[in-house]
């Protein structure tokens, strides 16, 4: 059986199509669903294995990015949502989706308490929207990130700055819930320095998970870095490959997350078998 991935849409979310494409490329059975349709038909969640809240500008970031959309989900969809994350499922929130699921308290959910809001993803320190490629160091047991140690993918956000109490930060560190951190191209920590850490996020945090690792909230966009031709160094890489008489690999690093999701539900296995 093929695992089903639901990708949310509506109210200003805007990355649902490319996110669907990434899941489908990984062999998953993806479906875009408008949030109002999901609210009316919440049992769909009970049949799904993956929930993706994609990037976008839900409610125009008004009242804080991801806040209003999270409020809507909390009011109209909380119980089915809680049931979903407590099953053996995978959830990913990318960019605006990251902000939404963080506001919903699906991450970091200390001691499995989904719904508690303890981390904020807020205005960049520059108070400016930033669209640029970044380098991430990945150190996580999350199924989404199996076998991934670094990622070169883009950020595109005005509010990507992870903030929290020191105590929360400490517990995230201890529990291995800091899934990805911004680094410099040479691999050393960004140490808060712009543009390597484009938002000014605490501890260079780019992504966090819940304690199980099955819920991933990530500010950079893996689906915008799934192909080599999407990369900022594509022109250089393409030219180099041609000179060396080889073909450039079709996929790039961001695709790993989607393959991992497929593998988790043994879809990849079935395909390659």
């Amino acid at each position: 059986m093929t695992a089903k991935a639901l990708i949310l849409a509506g109210y200003g979310l805007n990355c649902e199509e490319e996110t669907l494409h990434a899941f489908e490329r990984a062999g998953l059975n993806g479906k875009i669903m408008h949030i109002n349709d999901l609210i009316d038909d919440a049992h769909v969640l009970d049949d799904a294995q993956i929930l993706a809240v994609p990037g976008g500008f839900s409610y125009g970031d008004d009242t804080g990015s991801g806040n209003a959309f999270a409020q809507k989900m909390k009011l109209a969809l909380w119980e089915p949502l809680k049931r979903f994350v407590e099953r053996d499922t995978l959830t990913i929130g990318i960019c605006n989706g990251c902000q939404i699921i963080t506001n919903l308290g699906l991450v970091p959910a200390p001691e499995g308490q989904y719904g508690k809001r303890v981390v904020a993803v807020t205005h960049n320190l520059t108070a400016r929207y930033q669209c640029r490629w970044v380098d991430l160091k990945v150190n996580s047991a999350s199924p989404w990130l199996a076998g991934v140690s670094t990622l070169h993918i883009p950020v595109a956000h005005g509010e990507g700055r992870f903030m929290m109490d020191r105590a929360v930060l400490e517990s995230l560190r201890e529990n291995g819930q800091i899934a990805a951190q911004f680094i410099r191209p040479d691999g050393t920590p960004a140490a808060g320095l712009f543009p390597y850490n484009p938002s000014g996020a605490m501890d260079d945090i780019a992504a966090i998970t819940d304690e199980s690792g099955k819920v991933l909230a990530i500010m950079p966009h893996p689906e915008r870095g799934m192909y080599s031709w999407q990369r900022d160094d594509y022109m250089e890489a393409k030219d180099k490959a041609r000179r060396e008489g080889r073909r450039l690999p079709e996929e790039s690093e961001g695709m790993a997350l989607f393959h991992n999701a497929a593998r988790y539900f043994e879809v990849g296995k079935r395909k390659s078998a």
Binding site: E17, E18, Y129, Q130, A156, R224, W229
Partner: peptide, 15 residues
């Protein structure tokens, strides 16, 4: 350029 999202939709080849 850095303030304008130029790779949403995942379609940017040459930015």
């Amino acid at each position: 350029s850095t303030q304008y999202d130029h790779n949403v939709q995942g379609t940017a080849v040459l930015g």
